[in-house]
Amino acid sequence: MNVVEFKKPDSENKVVEFVGFGVSISGKQIFEGVSFPVYKNCITAIMGPSGSGKTTLLRSINRLLDEFCDVKYSGKLLFEGRDVINDGVDKTILRARIGMVFQRPNPFPGSIFDNVVYGLRLHGVRDKKLLEEVCIESLKKVGLYREVKNRLHRPAYDLSGGQQQRLCIARSLAVNPHVVLLDEPTSSLDPTSSAVIEELLTHLKKECTIIIVTHNLQQAGRISDYVAFLYPNEDLVSHLIEFGQTREVFFNPKESLTESYIAGKSG
């Protein structure tokens, strides 16, 4: 190419992009025609009422849906410029780039150390020193290291719920993901632990892109930079109602549906 690019093209800042994206599970259309970008080093919140397909949307990004249900995709889902649906991407390699944290903390029955380095071991890292280094670094990132440094080799189940959830975040960070997907990560936690995790996420976005599904509007308002709002129509098929900067969507929604949802009138 002999065209000199002076400005970073916009597409380079889009880590994930949905283009007319739809998912149907076992023949039932969950959502369709969803198009919005996810920008680098930002927190993008996906919100919507129960059953609007937020979780499904999140789980299609790392193709986790494929493992558990009969799923059909339509449209495009670009991850770093590549269509992960149609371009024959290796799912295990894709998932190494995408971290994930679930609603309930789900540590493995093993030590704290084993939990954090699980992903590294999967990808063939055996070097003990390196594993230890990454473990400590990841735990520091989630602010857990000081609390657990004397019991790295004790069971992860001994930790409190909030600590377990931070451990799960550390576990997903250990493989240096470019994107971290969080599926209502604070919904099973008390307010204090939730606040710790929210604070943590706002720091984490400096090194990776975060996509979070949340029921909690205040949470979305507090921590996210962009929001995508999904809402089901009368056939229970969801569509993207609105996408934009959080401040815009919350204070100056373009759609009346968004406005009433945020005001607590529907959904």
Binding site: R95, A96, M100, F102, S172
Partner: peptide, 10 residues
């Protein structure tokens, strides 16, 4: 949940 996270970690 344990299977899910295992797959999600690659």
């Amino acid at each position: 949940g344990l299977r899910e996270i295992s797959y999600a970690l690659g």
